[in-house]
């Protein structure tokens, strides 16, 4: 069935994770949970990126013994999204680390990890 091909599964999984992540960010009060949701969100996008690059029945874009040098264009999956994902993962790591650090600073300030305790800047 079409729906059970690997690319559709990854795509659906990606979107589901996306919604889960978004839901988490806006509904969870605990800051750490918000950050975890963000991480899930991030992962979902990576998943989507990779899924976009997949072509059925093809192999990894490395020209070694399993790929014929001259016919590479018909035997490999798309290498570009994989390169993009590498960069995206690192960016996600960076943001997550920063979020955690800011969460720590917030905790030092008010000894609370609830997002609604930090409303001093408003209107």
């Amino acid at each position: 069935m079409k729906l059970f091909e690997i690319e559709y599964i990854s795509l659906i999984a990606g979107f589901i994770l996306l919604i889960v992540g978004l839901w988490g960010i806006i509904s969870q009060r605990n800051i750490i949970k918000m950050i975890i949701s963000f991480s899930i969100l991030d992962t979902s996008v990576h998943l989507l990126l990779v899924a976009v690059g997949y072509i059925r029945n093809r192999t990894a874009p490395i020209i070694d013994s399993s790929v014929n040098k001259l016919n590479a264009a018909n035997e490999i999956t798309d290498p570009l999204p994989q390169a993009l994902v590498l960069t995206a993962i690192v960016i996600g790591v960076g943001i997550t680390a920063l979020l955690l650090t800011y969460a720590l600073k917030l905790f030092r300030q008010n000894s609370s990890l609830e997002i609604n305790q930090y409303k001093s800047l408003k209107w």
Partner: peptide
């Protein structure tokens, strides 16, 4: 579902 590599790839 994709079947071909695009031009860039």
């Amino acid at each position: 579902s994709r079947t071909e590599l695009n031009d860039v790839a």
